[in-house]
């Protein structure tokens, strides 16, 4: 089996096929990443910073067919979305329904969707930069402290932040 010498052409073809399969594999990962990427949309019903667009007194907004959210002027709410292309349906107080489609940048996790700007036909999606809030003090030292004792030993946290117990089967 190992003694057989392969034709260089076969070798090259085999290498190319393997490279092709690797590319397909990476491509599938990229595809799944693009379709599965989650974003948090901050639905904003406030006056724009430059004052050119005013907040709407009362509206109801639904993103990608999710349950509608009611927003009064000056209010914000959030919706979780998956993928890049989205459809937003805004119902204004007088019953007027507006549907718009928009895309979100792949790399950003949190985006702000200004509904007044959306209704005014202006670019409405901007990257939302949250305030840098200190993370809660939790689990400073971790890891499996009982790794060299019995695996059945209960993981009693001797100090705050000791490892969590495994989930019950």
């Amino acid at each position: 089996m190992s003694g057989t010498v392969l034709d260089p052409k076969v070798k090259t073809r085999r290498l190319l096929v393997r490279l092709g399969l690797l590319l397909v594999y990476v491509g599938v990962i990229a595809l799944v990443f693009t379709f599965g990427k989650g974003h948090t949309l901050i639905l904003d019903n406030k006056d724009s910073d430059d004052g050119s667009v005013k907040a709407i007194e009362s509206l109801s907004v639904s993103v990608d067919g999710q349950d509608p959210l009611d927003l009064a002027a000056g209010e914000r709410d959030q919706a979780k979305v998956q993928g890049q292309g989205h459809r937003v349906e805004v119902t204004v107080k007088d019953g007027q329904k507006v549907e718009r489609r928009f895309t979100v940048p792949l790399a950003e996790d949190i985006l702000l969707l200004s509904l007044p700007r959306l209704l005014a036909g202006q670019p409405a999606v901007t990257v939302f930069v949250p305030l840098d809030v200190a993370a809660p003090a939790e689990d400073q030292e971790e890891g499996n402290s009982n790794a060299f004792t019995s695996p059945s030993a209960p993981a009693e946290p001797a100090v705050p932040g000791a490892p969590a117990k495994p989930p019950a089967p």
Binding site: V28, V32, F33, G36, K37
Partner: peptide, 19 residues
């Protein structure tokens, strides 16, 4: 990694499996 990149739904699971 799937949680890190905020991947949701079945796509998140498939991503985790592929990676």
């Amino acid at each position: 990694l799937a949680v890190n990149y905020n991947l949701l739904g079945v796509c998140g699971l498939v991503f985790a499996a592929l990676v």
